[in-house]
Structure formats: structure tokens, C-alpha cells
């Protein structure tokens, strides 16, 4: 029960952080990505605020090698670099800049009742579904 409440709180803190940071305002995000125009560097500070905290947390837990409740960690590998990683990230970055929304902020904006965010989220879910259930089955069937 405690574990489930904490999981909900983790999502809540993540969302509140996104709101306060300015990440949920697409105009702000586009202002940050527009380095060749009138650049607003604010959102660089989101990473500067988040990464040191994440660094300390992961350092601690990777050393402990289990959760606080002594359950296994689910950590992805760090070194595998392939074409899919690069092409996927490039596609994601261009979509991010086009709308000023990435997955987390899009879901928070959806909760705020933005109808445009809803359109974006539906298209995003479709894109994910096409990759995981169609594209992967065709190109990675072996």
C-alpha cells in the first residue's frame, strides 16, 4: 500500500516540478529551442536542478542494488548505442520542437484541460502504438 502511494506521489511531484519549471508551456519550450532567434535559456536550468538530484539518488540505489523495500531494480543498460537510438531521438526532437511538447508535459497539459494537448496526446499514443505493434512486428519479426 505504502509503495503504491509513493508511486502516485512520485508522479505527482514529477508533474508539479514540470509545471513550476515552465516545461508545460509549449511557447516557453519553443523559446528555449530557438537558439538562433531570441533565445530564452530558462529551461536549461530545469536540467541543472534535476540532474544533480537524480545523480545522487541513482548513485545511492545502484550501490544498494535493491529498492528501500529490498525489491529488485529495473535499470536499462547504459552503453548500447545503435541506429534506432539515434534516428528515434532525432524524430522525437523534431516533433518536440514542432509543438513544444514532450510526453510528460503533454500529459500534465492534458490534465489541465487543454484540448490542443488532447489532440497531441492522441497522436502521440498512435505514434507509440504504430512503433510497438506494427513497425516492430514488420522490421523486427525475428
Amino acid at each position: 500500500m505504502m509503495k503504491n502511494i509513493l508511486t502516485f506521489i512520485a508522479g505527482l511531484a514529477f508533474g508539479i516540478g514540470l509545471i513550476i519549471s515552465g516545461m508545460t508551456n509549449p511557447a516557453k519550450v519553443i523559446g528555449f529551442l530557438d537558439i538562433f532567434g531570441n533565445w530564452d535559456p530558462s529551461l536549461m536550468f530545469v536540467m541543472l536542478g534535476a540532474i544533480p538530484i537524480s545523480f545522487i539518488g541513482f548513485k545511492f540505489i545502484e550501490k544498494k542494488a535493491s529498492t528501500i523495500f529490498n525489491e529488485p531494480l529495473h535499470l536499462p543498460g547504459k552503453t548500447h548505442i545503435n541506429t534506432e537510438l539515434i534516428v528515434g531521438s532525432l524524430l522525437f526532437g523534431s516533433g518536440w520542437a514542432l509543438a513544444g511538447l514532450c510526453p510528460g508535459p503533454a500529459l500534465v497539459a492534458l490534465g489541465s484541460g487543454s484540448s490542443k494537448a488532447m489532440i497531441f496526446v492522441v497522436a502521440m499514443l498512435a505514434g507509440m502504438y504504430v512503433h510497438d505493434h506494427l513497425y516492430k512486428n514488420i522490421f523486427k519479426s525475428n
Binding site: L91, W96, A99, L101, F120, M124, G127, V130, H131
Partner: peptide, 8 residues
Amino acid sequence: AGVLVGFG
């Protein structure tokens, strides 16, 4: 944009 973000 949504499709690119989801797929990418």
C-alpha cells in the same frame, strides 16, 4: 508532432 514524438 504528436506522431513524431510517440514513434521517435
